[in-house]
């Protein structure tokens, strides 16, 4: 899986020209998950921010004539449900999907994964190395970061539903009622829920940048892979 050069390098070390092949990395459910998640998270961040700091939007002076803040909150709650179920679906796919979608990608359990993390750090983050390992699926560092992202997904869902439990009689939010006293009251639940938003904002910035970065520097269709599913990968090295 790992080779000695970046994709743009068209030759193997032994001088043979490298052949590329198409690999179907991201199956449809992973792609669907990805884009639903992306859209819904952006909406959650925007509506969430507005819930915390509403703008002045007076197009009427009587309450019965407008409902924008109610709609914003409604959108937040709607996206929240989509977001949570979408995520649950992805967890399921982590057990039944292809090897690139498998759950064990996200934990650096093997020595190879840990070595790759170091390699990626050197090559892509600190750029002290010109050529480094290339994975077909997630690189080991990205995968590990997604693991933390998934933890943040959980934290945000739990705090979100805990807050929602005081506004809803549905059984899903009711399951989270006990979180509120545990965290020392709704004020602090809200505080953490709000603060976590900034984690997502930061993640989105870095993540989108890195998607472009990999595409830019590796030239093997990283961005289009999350649309169509295919990535380019080198054929295994030919033996003389």
């Amino acid at each position: 899986m790992s080779t000695t050069g970046i994709a743009a390098k068209s030759k193997f070390a032994n001088g043979h020209p490298a052949d590329y092949r198409r690999v179907y990395v991201w199956e449809m459910p992973v792609r669907a998950y990805h884009w639903i998640n992306a859209i819904v998270l952006v909406v959650l961040c925007i509506t969430g921010y507005l819930i915390g700091a509403p703008i002045r939007a007076f197009y009427a002076s009587e309450a019965y004539q407008q409902y924008w803040f109610g709609w914003i909150r409604f959108l937040h709650f709607l996206c929240a449900y989509v977001y949570v179920f979408n995520f649950l679906m992805r967890i399921y796919w982590g057990f039944v999907g292809n090897k690139y979608a498998k759950w064990n990608n996200f934990f650096p359990l093997t020595k190879a994964q840990r070595e790759e993390i170091m390699d990626v750090l050197k090559t892509d983050v600190f750029q002290v190395k010109l050529h480094g390992a290339i994975s077909t699926g997630h690189n080991a560092l990205a995968a590990f970061i997604y693991f933390f992202t998934f933890l943040a997904f959980c934290a945000q869902s739990i705090t979100g539903f805990a807050l929602y439990s005081s506004m809803s009689n549905s059984w899903i939010p009711r399951m989270f009622t006990w979180i509120v006293p545990l965290m020392g009251g709704e004020m602090s639940v809200r505080y953490w829920h709000h603060l976590f938003m900034w984690f997502f904002v930061t993640f989105i910035v870095v993540h989108i940048y890195l998607a472009f970065y990999h595409d830019y520097i590796e030239g093997r269709g990283t961005i289009s892979s999350i649309v169509g599913g295919w990535k380019f990968d080198k054929m295994p090295e030919k033996k003389d």
Partner: peptide
């Protein structure tokens, strides 16, 4: 919550806030 039965609640939902 105080908010659930606050008589100013319609203003909240309408986004009509004291600045």
């Amino acid at each position: 919550r105080v908010h659930d039965t606050c008589y100013r609640r319609p203003n909240y939902d309408a986004g009509l806030f004291v600045e």
